[in-house]
Nucleic acid binder design. Sequence first.
RNA 1: GGAGAGGUGGCUGAGUGGUCGAAAGCGGCGGUCUUGAAAACCGUUGAGUGUUAAAGCUCCCAGGGUUCGAAUCCCUGCUUCUCCGCCA
Length: 428
Amino acid sequence: MLDPKLFRNEIDQLAAALKARGYSLDVAAITALEDKRKSLQVSCEALQQERNASAKNIGKAKAQGQDIAPLLAAVDDMKAKLQQAEAELSQLQNELEAILGGVPNVPHSTVPAGLKEEHNVVVSSVGDIPSFDFEPKDHVDLGEALGMLDFETASKITGSRFAVMKGQLASLHRALTQFMLNTHTQEHGYEEVYVPYIVNRESLYGTGQLPKFEEDLFKLDDDREFYLIPTAEVPVTNLLRGEIVEEAQLPLRYTTHTPCFRSEAGSYGRDTRGMIRQHQFEKVELVQFVKPEDSEATLETLTGHAEAILQKLGLAYRKMALCAGDMGFSAAKTYDLDVWLPSQQQYREISSCSNFQDFQARRMKTRYRNSETGKPALLHTLNGSGLAVGRTLLAVMENYQQADGSIVVPPVLRPYMGGLQVISAAGK
RNA sequence: GGAGAGGUGGCUGAGUGGUCGAAAGCGGCGGUCUUGAAAACCGUUGAGUGUUAAAGCUCCCAGGGUUCGAAUCCCUGCUUCUCCGCCA
């Protein structure tokens, strides 16, 4: 949610800024509604004032033992008038809120212009692209040949876009998670948290998945309106929904490992092979709450924390600054980290790190007490994948494969694998 | 699943349908004292909206209702705690 004042006072500038990301703001409709709201609110408050004053007078008169019957008669029609005004106002406010809640964040001034993926800018490329003296296989062929990756059984159990892993590959998957969590908690200063994987509507509204992106989510058949989390961003960011934290506690850094569930509606036919795009995948998430003046720098360090994982794993990647039109709904600025996949001869997204500024915090009413003013002020929120575990697994498989189809375990993961150096069919 | 008790400001916690946005304490902030700090004492201190500033308005878990008037009464939901039952 953007600051409502922007819609009242600077709506034309706002519309121009949003156009950069391909969003066209209905200025005329919003202005008309806003004008109507203003006048309705004024008249409604005048009626409320009248009611309060007369009720007070009646109370006084009664206390003094006077006859209050004439006073009651005088306020006879007031109630109905007020009720009608309040109903109209609240309907209008809901209407406005629905519109404003659906307006995306304004791109930060440093965000590259452009509306499409090809306008994203390469910030840096790190690591050497591996060369093979044989034809590298993709992770599906590798995993199936090892007998450790099975999509057919998964689709029997559930359906498409699920995977079954076995043996050392399943262990490698777990090792990656442990390695990431340990790195973030021990080297990057994050506190590990465990959170629910099912969330309510309020939480999804807070981080911006609702009301606009309901079709991306799995909703439970339950009258409590529960959803499976599409990312740990939702429960972790909502840890502080409605809270006021002390400035001395900042910055707050949380990391967690959760499964993520995405309906992938609208992605039919895309990435149907392998583990790139699944309905269920694991992710280690980084979330930070910082003072507004710190968020820009924090996006750099947080992205660096995700990069550190790729570096320690020895994977080649590039850091992309997303253009205005390619960013998510709530983001003011986003870096994607794309890892090199030998089978595709291209980089694929493995992490997305964003600064939401106060966009989520305003929706969640997450504030801190500013020590200078003594007043509560909105925090800035950031998050990033550190990393998507399934995609990291397939990147490791493909980049560490050998001619015989075995997979070398990256040295940093060996302590988590009982010292195992190579995954081979014999190890199943 | 059954029975009972709660949900009030940053926190703890009072609050007979009318002067209650709400006692008190803690914490915070400012001051006195002190070389400095602590202690003590004095003052101040909810959030939002609105305004040049104010006034006004809204908010006592959420949503409905009763009433001229609701933190207070009624209904529904959510949630916390205690006891019983069941259970990984």
